[in-house]
């Protein structure tokens, strides 16, 4: 299993051809208290750059951008009842979607952990 990061503050954990995607701890800190997460249904086809999900804090709604092309195979239904999990465990239990990756070469455009940490330092 390899974990990648995007400059949109997502983590992408790849096992075989399935990528589990969520938002980083930095993103949840920036958002503040999450009150609602709108996730795509299984079967949704996403292209890199599409709006994949919406995460709403008290203050605002923010889009989560698909970091890769693929088909949604599962979304994390537990977040519907407990959106606050995104604040508590963003890089673990509060994953957003699992995506069947259709263009694995897009993974090379993503950052590794060290590069993402360095990127966050510049913000």
């Amino acid at each position: 299993m390899t974990t990648y990061y995007s400059k949109d503050h997502e983590w992408i954990s790849v096992e075989g051809d399935v990528a589990t995607i969520g938002i980083t701890n930095y993103a949840q800190e920036q958002l503040g208290d999450v009150v609602y997460v709108d996730l795509p249904e299984a079967g949704t086809e996403l292209a890199q750059g599409d709006d994949a999900a919406v995460v709403e804090s008290v203050k605002a709604a923010s889009e989560v951008i698909a970091p890769l092309d693929g088909e949604v195979v599962e979304s994390n239904e537990a977040l519907a009842d407990e959106p606050g999990k995104v604040n508590e465990d963003p890089e673990g239990a509060a994953w957003f979607i699992k995506l069947k990756v259709s263009n694995p070469e897009q993974l090379s455009e993503l950052l590794d952990e060290a590069a993402y940490k360095a990127y966050v330092e510049t913000l």
């Binding site: 503040g32 208290d33 009150v35 804090s57 203050k59």
Partner: peptide, 12 residues
Amino acid sequence: PVQYKAGIMSEH
């Protein structure tokens, strides 16, 4: 200031 350390929910 839009929020302090406690966050909007807790401040509210």
